[in-house]
Simulated assay, not measured.
Amino acid sequence: MTYFATQLTPIGPFTTIVDTDDVVLASGWTAEPEDLRPLIHPRIRPTELHVRTELGNVTRAVAAYHDGAIDAIDDIAVQQHSGEFLEHAWKILRAVPAGAPITYSAFAELSGRPAAVRGAASACARNAAALFVPCHRVLRIGGNLGGFRWGLPAKRWLLDHENAAATRV
Rank of each mutant, 00 (worst) to 15 (best):
M1L: 10
M1G: 11
Y3S: 12
F4E: 03
Q7K: 10
P10K: 11
P10W: 08
G12R: 10
G12V: 12
T15A: 03
I17E: 00
V18I: 03
V18T: 13
T20D: 14
D21K: 15
D22K: 04
D22A: 09
L25C: 01
A26H: 07
S27Y: 06
G28R: 02
T30Q: 04
T30C: 04
A31E: 11
E32Y: 09
E32H: 11
P33A: 08
E34G: 05
R37L: 10
R37C: 10
P38A: 08
I40L: 07
H41A: 15
P42Y: 03
R43W: 09
I44G: 12
I44Q: 08
P46Y: 14
P46R: 14
T47Y: 13
T47V: 09
E48T: 13
H50F: 13
L55C: 10
N57I: 10
V58H: 04
V58Y: 03
R60Q: 13
A61C: 14
A61R: 13
V62S: 02
Y65C: 15
H66N: 12
D67V: 08
G68D: 12
G68H: 12
I70N: 05
I70P: 08
D71Q: 11
D71E: 12
D71C: 08
A72M: 04
I73Y: 02
I73N: 08
I73E: 05
D74H: 11
A77L: 10
Q79M: 03
Q79G: 00
Q79H: 05
H81E: 12
H81G: 00
S82N: 14
E84G: 07
F85A: 05
E87D: 12
E87K: 06
H88F: 15
A89D: 01
A89Q: 01
R94W: 02
R94P: 07
A95D: 06
A98R: 08
A98M: 04
G99H: 03
G99M: 02
I102C: 02
T103F: 01
T103I: 02
T103M: 00
S105T: 13
A106Q: 14
L110S: 06
L110G: 06
G112C: 11
G112M: 13
G112W: 09
R113G: 08
A116Q: 09
V117F: 01
A121D: 06
A121E: 12
A123T: 09
C124M: 09
C124Y: 00
C124G: 06
C124F: 03
R126D: 11
R126L: 13
N127C: 10
A129D: 02
A130E: 09
L131R: 09
V133M: 04
V133W: 00
C135P: 04
H136T: 07
H136K: 05
R137L: 14
R137I: 03
R137P: 06
L139F: 01
L139R: 03
I141N: 10
I141P: 04
G143D: 00
N144Y: 08
L145W: 01
L145I: 05
L145P: 00
L145F: 09
G146L: 01
G146W: 00
F148A: 11
F148I: 09
R149S: 03
W150G: 03
L152V: 11
L152W: 01
P153A: 05
P153T: 05
A154Q: 14
A154G: 07
K155S: 04
W157C: 04
L158H: 00
L159M: 01
D160R: 12
D160A: 13
D160I: 05
H161S: 07
E162N: 06
N163K: 14
N163I: 10
A164D: 05
T167F: 09
T167S: 14
R168C: 13
V169D: 12
